[in-house]
Design a protein around this nucleic acid. Sequence first.
RNA 1: GCCGACCUGGCGCAAUUGGUAGCGCACCACUCUUGUAAAGUGGGGGUUACGGGUUCGAGUCCCGUGGUCGGCUCCA
Length: 661
Amino acid sequence: MNILLAGKTHQVSEGATGFDLFELREVIAMHVNGEARDLSHVVVAEDKVEGILIDSPAGLEILRHSTAHVMAQAVQELFPNAKLGIGPYITDGFYFDFDVAEPFVPDDLKRVEKRMKELVGKSQRFTRIEVSDEEAKRLMADEPYKLELIGLKSEDVQEGSVEVSAGGLSVYENTNPDGSLAWRDLCRGPHLPNTRQIGKSFSLSRSAAAYWRGNENNKQLQRIYGTAWATKEALAEHLDRIEQAAKRDHRKLGVELDLFSFPEEVGSGLAVFHPKGGIIRKVMEDYSRAKHEEAGYEFVYTPHITKSNLFEQSGHLNWYSDGMFPPMKLDSEVGEDGEVRKQGVDYYLKPMNCPFHILIFKSRSRSYRELPLRMFEFGSVYRYEKSGVLHGLTRVRGMTQDDAHLFVTQDQLQQELTSVLKFVLDLLRDYGLNDFYLELSTREEGNPKFVGEDAIWESATKTLEQVANDSGLELVADPGGAAFYGPKISVQARDAIGRTWQMSTIQLDFNLPDRFNLEYVGSDGARHQPIMIHRALFGSIERFFGVLTEHYAGHFPPWLAPVQAVCIPVADEFADYLDIFASSLKKEGMRINVDHSDSRMQKKIRDHTLDRVPFIILAGARDVEAGTLAFRFRDGNQRNDIPLEEARQLIRDAIGNKEQV
RNA sequence: GCCGACCUGGCGCAAUUGGUAGCGCACCACUCUUGUAAAGUGGGGGUUACGGGUUCGAGUCCCGUGGUCGGCUCCA
């Protein structure tokens, strides 16, 4: 019979499997008509077959999932009472969940890893068995969680589930070379042919609890995470990437560079910015204000607390009170006669700025001539995030949003969204972020939680989509991801080491204009409801600060750097020369100083390099004589004999053009 | 919030089976006055997160509180 092998017609005998088709050892599975299959799979006439190499994306998934199996086998050998949860591959690795009486400790992981290496050495075969539901239940009788999955399989199968799929069930058995059964699991496959192919390039990284089937009302199982690669080199590179990422962790750099801290005395998730971090933040804020001013925004200011009725009207208290700090209760005053002299009132810290901006809009009647009306505020908000989710500056309880609310007419919507998106992207580019994609979050059809008329959703979603498409950026759909009150576009940015961060969001709101009865008088003299757009570019300044710190690994470009230049005299006698130079630039507003300390020059270079100062400027006898300076940069490069005026211009340009050096 | 681990001078780390807190960097002083990543000497600084308990004795053991870290769940 004929099959199509790697695009070419091949003649193979009846009953041929992948083992007959591929000689390369690196081929560990195959795609048959687009479906990943074991090599033991029997092909039939006209099948389209492609080999899967172990180091290809599909191959690595199979390798990782197979490694997860071996891990589970090792765990059950060492902990006979451990019950199996699920064990899928994930980015860079895999995990497996177990129900065990005692959580794993680091030493357990070492034992498991050791046992895994032994199992890999045993050359056990992965054997696939297609089974009926009844057969599956019989084989997995001791595994309550697997039984639950078997019961679920027809409905409610999660996307990408590795245990079961909507089709028939299968079980994988690991068998020893002598044919004896070593272990089995309910699994969709495919797998490597043999445990030996897992090799040595895997390691277990950590264990943690995870809710069964991702639901916090379910029992927590113990999850072990691991990473697995096709080669030792690839594993080493992976571990190195993790190490590099750890080095640019903003929490670590925040301490090292003296940027910010989280005093225990203040409370969890509440940051204080130190002078150096304060400079960066101030530059960011100043620049943001200037850009907003240019773009026709008006600045407003609103208080941090409000009486409860505002958030009752907005609905926040109803929907999100768990995420708000509890109220400050002003007790009522009751006279001796029992008469209430003063009503009790609750005040809340604001978790959002929108209701305040809405009140400004409502403070008088509005004409269509005033629209689009753009209100901007650095609004500090407080959200009672669960203690376990706090993370440095990227997830905090007190933050300042660069928040704006735009009130527009239906006709203005597209134009306004287009310019907001351009505004956002331009601003992010100024911060060295220029690799973006967009995510369009839309509502789920038929879900009653989404408010607003169908027609409005439809047209607004279409408008957003059009604006997103017109931007020319990659657009990823996020169906069902919209807030209940409107669809949104979010801008995702990739940082210097390829991680993506959700940055800006542009969100339509069909709810608040309604709840607050917003209206303007149109050219027809009638009252109309404006459309409201929420948008934040940084998201929160704190979060953006954290992301930028990691993006630059603390090497802030000169325009943001807390100290832009430090001058180091080769010997004390040249300090005056540098003082004159530095003060000339200081007058221009530059953050430059001369290091007069007692340390040796080499020591000063080291200190300021570690402090990530962009320009280190040296001068000695040669320079004083020639009227020049020597530059040293953070990467160790130097430029010598630069005339004073050229040196000034070099720094001015780098700052003015927001260049990285 | 849940599970687990952790919390020692500003920072990074030590302290054998519970025996009475050390080191490096930083800081201060003095000496040295230097051409591209660490000069030398001396000095100051910790009621070991906080509160309780066990013990002759607690940084080490137990309980509680706070905080941090890694996950899970969540993120208007």
